[in-house]
Design a protein around this nucleic acid. Structure first.
Lengths: 135, 135
DNA sequence: CAGCATCCTGATTGATACTG
DNA sequence: CAGTATCAATCAGGATGCTG
């Protein structure tokens, strides 16, 4: 890790963990992720599974508001992306347990930071909104 | 409340900055934010404006791929949420400069963390995807 | 230059019904 | 219990054309 990065002047009032690869972001890599983060269900499920593994209907009940279709779809997507692991338990009534993969757990970190920001600045946003409401 | 799950905080794997308020998240506060983050344009514009203030067509050129409609819409949304500031400069050909508000700049931090994660784990996701390609 | 209005398309989502 | 299948509605988003 070289210390001296690009000659970016310290014109930033807030410090950025990284210069933020705007190009990269525009390209695609982060785009995919932000897509996932975009839909409420994915984030919610990751967070939920971050606490504990859940079974299908357990998730259905926990979220309550999501349709089976979306629950399945979202879980599939997360599974495909390697964020969630799906394990079928050999019980008489079939049970399926969903859990976070290490990759999924690692996502939980920046996700938490964002969620934290959201909670912390919820008031600011609402105020800003009502300030220009009804126009 | 401390870490209530698996007893031993296995910091060996991944540590969570916060237990992540699943309830809060499900409620709405964060939901709004994740909505914003969801659409690629918002994030991209925030990142772009995070580097420097830009004028309308400047953004249009920078992003290049966004339609005027979406550019305007997204900027409006960000402005309403108090993340972006719109300043009309009294020039002969009207110029409008968009910049990040302090709130917007603060969002840049967790956003960068997420973008960083995305870039870092891009390969993992791609691998996971091609591994279970639904061909 | 900056921005709005209109039309149109495809992806996303929800409700419902059915199955192993 | 854990899904899949289908239909209809919604909506993000793009293209185009027109103002101040």
């Amino acid at each position: 890790m070289s210390d001296t990065h690009t000659g970016v002047p310290s014109a930033l009032e807030y410090e950025l963990p990284r210069p933020v690869p705007a190009d990269e972001l525009a390209a695609c890599p982060a785009g995919e992720v932000f897509r996932r983060v975009g839909d409420k269900w994915s984030v919610l499920l990751v967070v939920l599974l971050g606490g504990r593994p859940h079974r299908y209907n357990e998730l259905h009940r926990a979220v309550e508001g999501i349709s089976q279709r979306m629950l399945t779809r979202t879980l599939r997507g997360l599974e495909i992306d390697g964020l969630v692991r799906r394990e079928v338990l050999p019980t008489v009534p079939p049970s399926v347990e969903y859990s976070l993969t290490p990759l999924g757990r690692s996502l939980l970190v920046p996700l938490s930071a964002l969620a934290d920001w959201a909670v912390r600045h919820e008031g600011d946003i609402r105020r800003a909104r009502s300030d220009s409401t009804g126009r």
